[in-house]
Design a protein around this nucleic acid. Sequence first.
RNA 1: GGAGAGAUGCCGGAGUGGUUGAACGGGACGGUCUCGAAAACCGUUGUGCGGGCAACUGUACCGAGGGUUCGAAUCCCUCUCUCUCCGCCA
Length: 423
Amino acid sequence: MLQLAFIRQNRDLVKERLAVKNFADLDLVDEIISLDEKRRKTQLENDELASKVNAASKEIGMLMGKGEKEAAEQKKTEVAQYKESSKQIADELAALEQQVNDLLVKLPNLPSTLVPAGKTPEDNVNVKEAGADPVLPANAVPHWDLIKQYDIVNFELGVKITGSGFPVYKGKGAKLQRALISYFLDYNTAAGYTEYIPPYMVNEATAYGTGQLPDKEGQMYYMPADNFYMIPTAEVPVTNIYRDDILKETDLPIKMTAYTPCFRREAGSFGADVRGLNRVHQFDKVEIVQLVHPDKSYESLDEMVAHVEKLVQSLGLKYRILRLCGGDMSFTSALTYDFEVWSGAQKKWLECSSVSNFENYQTNRMKIRFKDEKGKPQLAHSLNGSSLALPRILAALLENNQTENGIVIPEVLRPYYGADILQ
RNA sequence: GGAGAGAUGCCGGAGUGGUUGAACGGGACGGUCUCGAAAACCGUUGUGCGGGCAACUGUACCGAGGGUUCGAAUCCCUCUCUCUCCGCCA
């Protein structure tokens, strides 16, 4: 969430930036500020009263020690008077704190100045487009036909076992998934990322930390018996690894990578977008996460974008990089670049990675800090990106690399897959 | 799942109602010494919120949440987690 002190000191700037994100309820900012003023006033009252009680209690202790019972009793009646108002003020203060916080989490992150205004994906800025157009055979078909032809992914089986959107990978398809995961992880660790295998279910505090809660619980699968959420992305457990920690400045940057399955309810999705592997409820993804010094986070973002770009290039896919407009970016992000690969037979761009800088929006929720030169705790910045999401990469690879003889496996994957061609 | 024990600062570990934000030890950091280092010695070593230009100061925090009391790390209740034993089990 945004920092209260920042909102207080930059009321107009905050509103102006929120408008870029098409955030409608700008009055919320004023409401928060006035509520916070009330909160501070109340705290002052509360603290002063508590101070009096504490002082009197100490005196009582000393009087008792000296055996001056009567004087002590007299003090007690004095304290009793303070206590009457103190309970009420303390409750009031707690309520105000709660109210301020409840409103504060409703504010999305401020978009960086690089974020273009806009409402829909059409307003995203195409930053770069590269890679050769795939050369397809005349009888090229989309990946949902190819997976049947080679019997590598079975959706009907997933429906039987679980429901729609839970694909079953089989044989060479399963092996190819494993090859992709291993390749992505190796590529990330070679760049200095530490590999993790986190839990795939998280508690409420964790889901809150990265911004999935409150209000967005509808996107996650929920296990009421234990109050756990299935992770929608590795970002959630991995970023929370350092929740409530105060790091040394020299610990930064912290780079982490993890493969996890991701679970998304995707309520309301329908149509051509969900065909085949384009959108599913369970999919595999390798994620990269960084915690960095606030002065360096945009440098890190560029570095991560370059990192993902090389990975996409190495697979020989045609791709483009988009800078998301205010209306298309996520609640928690300050700046996001999406990667899309060209899926030759569908003739469609498929999003395969999203790389974002959250500045201190997430770290403020998670209280991930470091001590600066002066020894003062300061919020770190958090970033993450997919490196990469598998299903759409698989879809593009299948479609773009189809030949009469089978699916050509990209060179970088061959050591992992164990063959040059999938037949 | 059953029984028992426990949860204190960066770590270990005291503390069972009063001036304790917390003894002691270790670690880390700074200094003295040294050509340099080690050792030794001296010192520093919390976080949030509020007030203050600042020095500083008020308050809260000893797993979490309630309660008792003039006063709670210390007593009571609830919850969570950890450990040990038994059962079950990949």
